[in-house]
Design a binder for these strands. Structure first.
Lengths: 131, 131
DNA sequence: CTTTACGTTTACGTTAACGTCAAGCATCCA
DNA sequence: TGGATGCTTGACGTTAACGTAAACGTAAAG
């Protein structure tokens, strides 16, 4: 929402924005998911940190453990200067895609079952209404 | 895979089939996710238990906590004799659908980002190959 | 008849992901 | 200047989802 690329945020602002406590934000730093700048002892968050936080939160909504989230978002930051590195990243991408598509298959199956179940309930309800 | 509806399974068979330990299966019983028959002190699993286990495992793959999985699969077993019960179930179904669709949105976003990132990497690789 | 295989309960241990104090600086503001 | 506010670092507590070990029953198999 901020256009200025040099804008920074405090831990309170970041926590409020993502709907978590500052303890949570610090926990993510402890395990190396983010690494805000320090001014003195105070943490200063940049856009890069917000980007990573957003990815973390989405990973959480999807139910991924933080360790797995780390491998995912770190993938976007791996240096890709050499061909071997690029090829490694590409292989990891395939890996991730498989995982995500498996999940989507499960999700779609769950949604279809829910639809069928709802239709059944609606039918029952209609039958009750009639009599 | 078993046609006979009266077929039963031991805990070892069930655990092997779903790729978990017997401790896990017992844990699910402890928290009331399944309730196998008892013959003496020995657990006897029926098709109903397998069905629920399958739902549990899918919930796990989707990253749901067991408590949430319970509310989901119990929904399929709520008595729906009275209109009020049916209406409650239908409202719960809507609730679940919202949740699942939010997840699918997140999942699709993640997949699209992955696609874009892969395309970028492929382009980089191609540029390296050319020069 | 005792070993082996499989089952049971009880209970403490472990890991992840934070929650929850406590105690201490820094700064703003009336 | 003296709270109030906001930030910091410990460090112990908690919940979920099992792991793991002990100690015991039972039934088939050699």
């Amino acid at each position: 929402m901020e256009a200025d690329p040099s804008h920074t945020w405090t831990i309170a602002e970041i926590a409020a924005e993502f709907g978590v406590t500052h303890r949570t934000v610090r926990h993510y730093e402890e395990i190396g998911l983010i690494s805000p700048e320090r001014r003195g002892s105070t943490r200063v968050y940049h856009r890069r940190d917000r980007t990573r936080l957003a990815l973390i939160m989405r990973g959480r909504r999807l139910g991924f453990p933080l360790e797995e989230i780390r491998t995912i978002i770190d993938l976007y930051d791996v240096p890709r200067g050499r061909r071997s590195q690029l090829e490694y990243v590409l292989s990891q991408i395939e890996q991730r895609r498989c995982d995500l598509e498996q999940r989507r298959a499960d999700l779609d199956a769950a949604l279809r079952e829910l639809d069928a179940f709802e239709a059944g309930c609606q039918a029952e309800l209609a039958a009750m209404t009639v009599r």
